[in-house]
Amino acid sequence: MQSYEVNSKGVEIFTKSWLPEANQPKAVICFCHGYGDTCTFFFEGIARKFASAGYGVFAMDYPGFGLSEGLHGYIPSFDGLVDIVIEHYSKIKESPEFRSLPSFLFGQSMGGAVALKVHLKQPNSWTGAILVAPMCKIADDITPPWLVKQVLIGIAKLLPKQKLVPQKDLADLACREKKKRYAMDYNVISYKHKPRLRTALELLHTTQEIEKQLDKISLPLLILHGKADMLTDPSVSQALYEKARSTDKKLILYDDAYHSLLEGEPDEMILRVFNDIFSWLDAHIGQKLDE
């Protein structure tokens, strides 16, 4: 099911949901999409797999992304974006039909940073989080040199919406399977241009903030990352695993895998990642029901 909803700020947000046929969902999964991405296209197939396995999946396009209202690719405030995510998913979790169910955050790439910030603002509200190649740090190879960065910071104060940040081909860096790289060209509502100055600075500041707060993460965690990821740094996922105060946490690093673990890898790797996710979810739903 899909719809448009107007949030408390008066912004029109595009939302989608996928529910198991006939049966009550085993749990609620709230999806946080990555930079430039959307809750449609690639995620459609992912969500259907979750629904087929008995989970209720809920997703939204952030303002400025996908089919939601706002300047395309523009994030004036990452904290403001997180507040919008919290508002939308809190309504779902508090609705009578889902209130008693376990609830999980599911964040991919930048969505991993969104999920972590949601948790830091709502430390006791979620059963757990699944983080797929979370953006806890942007890889050094794709960030501008220090001097260029200082120039861009200065320009951003005057021209925050301009697309001036240098960027490599993210599709090539994200997908290991070549034929799946080409499929990204058909996702016409994704944001494929150079990052806007304010957006780039918000992403950089957010990753710096998260790196400093890893020891405040306390919910059950499943962290999945490709060892050959060239967009987000897998070593910071290792640091998240080591520093998080969560007593229930699991890190899986996949040899040779790139950034897009559920969309851009060979089919056998994608199946392996899904199996790891479902095994973890089923175990944690069982734990929740036993409490």
Rank of each mutant, 00 (worst) to 15 (best):
D172E: 02
A53N: 12
A51S: 15
F41T: 13
S77G: 12
T143L: 14
T40I: 13
F98M: 04
F41E: 13
S100I: 11
I210E: 01
D215Y: 09
S3V: 00
S8L: 04
T232R: 02
A239T: 15
I155P: 01
N7C: 08
G286D: 13
I13S: 05
T143E: 10
M60P: 00
D290V: 06
I270E: 07
L231V: 08
A200C: 05
H119Q: 14
Y186V: 07
D248S: 10
Q162A: 14
I189M: 09
E209I: 06
S77E: 09
L101D: 03
A51P: 11
Y62W: 13
K117Y: 05
K49F: 07
C30V: 12
L219N: 07
S246H: 10
L289T: 12
K168D: 05
W280C: 05
A59F: 07
H193R: 10
I210P: 03
I29L: 15
E242T: 06
G64T: 11
L159E: 02
N124T: 14
A183W: 03
I75H: 03
E69Q: 15
E94M: 12
L289G: 13
S218T: 10
C136R: 04
D229T: 10
M135R: 08
E268T: 08
R245Y: 00
Q2Y: 15
C39P: 04
F31D: 01
Q162K: 13
Q2H: 15
P144R: 05
L251K: 11
G226N: 12
E69T: 01
G128H: 09
